[in-house]
């Protein structure tokens, strides 16, 4: 039992990473019907920027704050320069563009910082608490609190603020939004910027344990895609639940089914998702009828 609880806690920790990246994917998909495969690579690039700033002597949290702002600008710029001109192109063209972005950002990270795994500073202290025989590290707790705070802020913004309402409207009703005075492209730009910040946070949470490298987010984006599918592609809340479920399924599944072992780790969450999607094709929180492939 303790072992299972322990795995649960660890699963939640990695789940926060998948959840944050899945939120980014869902926000972009909801607004522009695009699955941005390059989200992880864009995020990695920005974590490198933060790392570089710490090397230059900036305190970690200052570097992170600056890099978060840069992420926002990067996400907005990618939308304006690469996505907006082809928004009405066929989906296949957009997929190819996203693959181009994926390769482009990975190549840029590789070119500027090389392929070595870099040690990224820990974000939280090394403290470990033991509650009923289950060890909970400050790191795990910190990650969960970070995610909860960000999710709460995002939800409050979408619900209560004028700009959040306008972003939702621009995403849901691109045609009708101009009739109430909303500049749709401005809202989509903001959406891409905000999504890039969530991607950045996912990468920052992942970097201390995965080590910083140009391909760091490869497995993470696969899990995040799974999380978004599980939660439903139009629901940020679903993305968060999906991310946590995928994280837990990954660690628990590996432990429970010893025979499977580490090699098949990646397969377990997907098996689970396939089963769930049989029952709810639109995802746990998705709205039926809006699922598009």
């Amino acid at each position: 039992m303790t072992l299972i609880l322990q795995q649960l806690v660890e699963g939640l920790a990695s789940g926060t990473i998948y959840a944050a990246l899945a939120v980014a994917l869902v926000m972009i998909h909801r607004a522009t019907r695009i699955v941005n495969f390059a989200q992880g690579e864009m995020a990695t690039f920005c974590v490198y920027l933060a790392w570089q700033m710490t090397v230059w002597g900036l305190p970690l949290y200052v570097a992170l704050a600056i890099a978060a702002v840069l992420s926002f600008i990067l996400g907005a710029a990618v939308f304006r320069l690469a996505i907006r001109p082809i928004l009405s192109a066929p989906p296949e063209a957009i997929v190819v563009s996203c693959i181009g972005l994926f390769i482009g950002f990975q190549a840029m990270s590789l070119w500027l910082w090389g392929s070595d795994n870099l040690q990224f500073p820990r974000l939280f202290s090394n403290t470990i608490w033991t509650i009923a025989d289950v060890r909970i590290s400050a790191n795990t707790a910190g990650m969960l609190v970070t995610l909860a705070l960000l999710a709460g802020l995002l939800a409050a913004m979408f619900r209560f603020t004028r700009i959040g309402l306008a972003m939702r409207a621009a995403a849901a009703e691109r045609e009708k939004s101009p009739y109430v005075g909303i500049e749709v492209e401005t809202m989509l730009t903001l959406g891409w910027g905000l999504a890039a910040v969530f991607g950045f946070i996912a990468a920052v949470l992942a970097a201390p344990s995965l080590f910083l490298s140009p391909t760091m987010m490869l497995s993470v984006i696969i899990y995040a895609l799974a999380a978004a599918t599980l939660g439903g592609w139009d629901s940020p809340a679903g993305a968060i639940v999906g991310g946590l479920v995928v994280g837990v399924a990954e660690t628990l599944g590996t432990t429970l089914v010893k025979a499977i072992g580490a090699e098949l780790r990646l397969a377990i969450p997907f098996l689970l998702i396939t089963l769930i999607l049989f029952v709810r094709p639109q995802g746990l929180f998705g709205r039926s009828g809006t699922t598009r492939v």
Partner: peptide, 25 residues
């Protein structure tokens, strides 16, 4: 102001949110 042909409302938004959207500017 323009009430377009067909459904001029934001269907996935509450009545109150529709009025808030109308007042966006």
């Amino acid at each position: 102001a323009h009430v377009p042909q067909g459904r001029g409302t934001f269907v996935d938004f509450s009545v109150e949110e529709n009025l808030r959207l109308g007042a966006y500017s």
